[in-house]
């Protein structure tokens, strides 16, 4: 019983975490099976995935989780703009964009602390 007791959290992890999550990757493998590299279906799937990713970005910025919510919305939006502009201006470097955005966020949070 104690062996099962120790393993139980991992059984739960597989049943209610791994399986409901991984099934979508398996369905993706099945759906990709017939799609060619230049197919219309692929173009559509990529557009859907990009829109979801953009949606995740917008939701985190507008409805910030945890400690990020301690920074005012205006600062979060301004830091996002700073990140994109820094990326465009500084050799198209994601690192430069992310770094400048984070600095803007911390400084803005300090200046405009609620």
């Amino acid at each position: 019983m104690s062996v099962l007791g120790d393993l139980w959290p991992y059984v739960v992890l597989v049943l209610v975490g791994f399986l409901p999550n991984e099934i979508w990757r398996w369905l993706g493998v099945v759906a990709a099976h017939r799609a060619g590299e230049q197919s219309e279906f692929l173009t559509w799937a990529r557009a859907v995935a990009t829109a979801v990713l953009a949606g995740v970005v917008a939701k985190i910025i507008f409805f910030a989780p945890g400690a990020l919510a301690s920074v005012p919305l205006a600062v979060r939006l301004a830091a996002t703009v700073v990140a994109v502009i820094a990326y465009l201006l500084i050799r198209r470097s994601i690192f430069a964009g992310v770094l400048c955005g984070s600095i803007a966020l911390v400084l803005g949070g300090l200046v405009l602390a609620p």
Partner: peptide, 12 residues
């Protein structure tokens, strides 16, 4: 669910 279109777009 979002993982599915990602996999579909990447594997080919």
């Amino acid at each position: 669910v979002r993982l599915m279109p990602m996999v579909v777009a990447l594997l080919p």
